[in-house]
Nucleic acid binder design. Structure first.
Length: 279
DNA sequence: ACGGATTCCTGATGGC
DNA sequence: TGCCATCAGGAATCCG
């Protein structure tokens, strides 16, 4: 599922192919994916140039000219790919719900179409006009980015979070970017139990958690993310799933002690951990 | 104030 | 083999 490393990968690949391109036309094939006002959705976007593509936690932000923005959350199965406009394709590609026709005005009439694809249709697209983005972002109340936050910030945020460490890592208002995969991977690498009350983290434990999180998130970005189920970035699948220690490995030996990894539910999320190594 | 269930969705998987 | 139930999960929302 797209978490920080997957979203970061997509953002880099999207930036390379869309930055300085102009949105000339927008089509939406499945209306519920548009979560902002329907009437203004394409009008905020059409005719604007894409100045930057950035990541905010697990959100993807296209910043356009004239203080207009396209903000996307991929949820479970959202992804992007490039192709030609639906009419020229003879219809919509499977599970594609929005199409953005892009032209590069700096060169000869080059054009490409960016498709938003989402099998389970959980993802949402929002367009913002001038002055509208920041109030929305503020309402999300996102914590510091999991990749940028310091060890001290990890400790401050986590020791103020209610509930278990697993719940705290998944809570985007505590730290932004973790999802189920990297929460489990970070916890096992730091030898910390998902059940552990976040408030009880010691300085050393918070430091270890931070160290492992940085190592894992950066390594995962180098691998262009984890491809489990059907995640793909525009340039294809990632490979970090080959480095997973816990996620998807229930019943297999713990990499540290060799005893079987356990799978349980914590706050409704599948959680794989070692009952012996993670304290 | 917390955990838990529910909702949104579809495809993959497992059991019989 | 075929069919139905279950599961997967990000995050909002509601419920106890």
């Amino acid at each position: 599922m797209p978490e920080l490393p997957e979203v970061e990968t997509m953002v880099r690949e999207l930036a390379a192919k869309t930055q300085a391109w102009r949105i000339s036309e927008v089509l939406v094939h499945y209306a519920p994916i548009v979560a902002s006002a329907w009437e203004s959705f394409s009008s905020w976007l059409v005719g604007q140039d894409i100045e930057a593509v950035t990541r905010i936690g697990k959100w993807i932000l296209f910043s356009l000219t004239e203080d207009r923005h396209l903000l996307i959350h991929l949820k479970m199965t959202g992804q992007f790919h490039f192709d030609v406009w639906p009419e020229e394709l003879g219809g919509w590609p499977p599970h594609c719900h929005a199409a953005f026709r892009l032209i590069n005005h700096a060169q000869e009439p080059l054009e490409r179409t960016l498709y938003y694809k989402d099998t389970r249709k959980f993802g949402r697209l929002r367009a913002f006009g001038p002055g509208q983005l920041n109030p929305f972002l503020a309402s999300l109340n996102l914590g510091p980015d999991a990749l940028i936050a310091t060890a001290q910030e990890y400790r401050q945020r986590l020791t103020q979070a209610p509930g278990s460490l697993k719940a705290a890592l998944l809570d985007q208002t505590v730290l932004a970017g973790f999802g189920n995969i990297y929460a489990d991977e970070t916890l096992i690498a730091a030898h910390l139990s998902p059940f552990r009350k976040a408030k009880t983290l010691t300085i050393d434990e918070a430091t270890a958690l931070h160290t492992q999180a940085q190592r894992i998130l950066n390594h995962a970005i180098e691998c262009r993310g984890s491809t489990v189920a059907n995640y793909q970035a525009p340039e294809g699948a990632g490979s970090y799933q080959n480095h997973h220690l816990a996620y998807g490995k229930a019943g297999q030996p713990c990499p540290f002690c060799g005893r079987a990894l356990n799978k349980i539910k914590v706050n409704g999320r599948g959680t794989v951990y070692c009952p012996f190594c993670q304290k």
